[in-house]
Amino acid sequence: MFNWLTQYWLSPKSFYHASGRLLPWLAFVCLLALGYGSIAGLFFAPADYQQGDGFRIMYVHVPSAFAAMAVYFLMAVSALITLVWRVKVAAICMSVSARIGVWFTLLALITGSLWGKPMWGTYWVWDARLTSVLILLFLYLGFIALQSVITDIQARERASAILALIGVINLPIIHYSVIWWNTLHQGPSLSAFAQPTIAAAMLWPLLAMITGFLLFFAVILLWRMRNHILLREMRTQWVEALIK
């Protein structure tokens, strides 16, 4: 079963073709989700009882923070597959994910500090949540730096996959930091197991934005993975046929 998966579906060639068919649909739904989320979040969601209109930063902050962590998780899973099964597509997915995830992390930090200044009274505080997300940014940057200094492809992928896997320990720390320690950052507002603490009219745009961010990631990921597949498979007949 797994061999069939790796050899057929995860072969660079079939992945290239399958992702090419999927991409326009993903882009379309992504546009819908982001369009609805932005308009509803900026215009129609009612102002918060405590933060007034200031809470509208949530619609870009929460999705980017969520995406930063989800992308790292995907990167770590790809790293595991790269190390154990040596699937070429997984190695490419890992490398490309890092180069997108780092942007979401940066975005989460910037939008967070733009939210922190008016609400908390400070751009930055060294509490456990903010610090652990900063560490996530450094993990991404470290991964990219490590990849850029090793020239041999095999060695580069093995070394960076190990780094990606070590860093996965940071994910539960980020998530539970606001529960384990006293922080300035508030507790989680969305959880799979609890009633949301956000009113419905404010919640739907947020869910749409989260979906939109993840789909945007998927679009850029597939787009860039396809680029790298072509580069890697440059000397094969199917790429030659495709180019001509």
Binding site: G54, I57, V60, I110, L114, W115, K117, P118
Partner: peptide, 16 residues
């Protein structure tokens, strides 16, 4: 103006 919060909201959305 966003109730005075515009100077925080628009940069955040803009950078996004």
């Amino acid at each position: 103006n966003m109730g005075g919060y515009g100077i925080w909201i628009w940069p955040a959305w803009g950078v996004t």
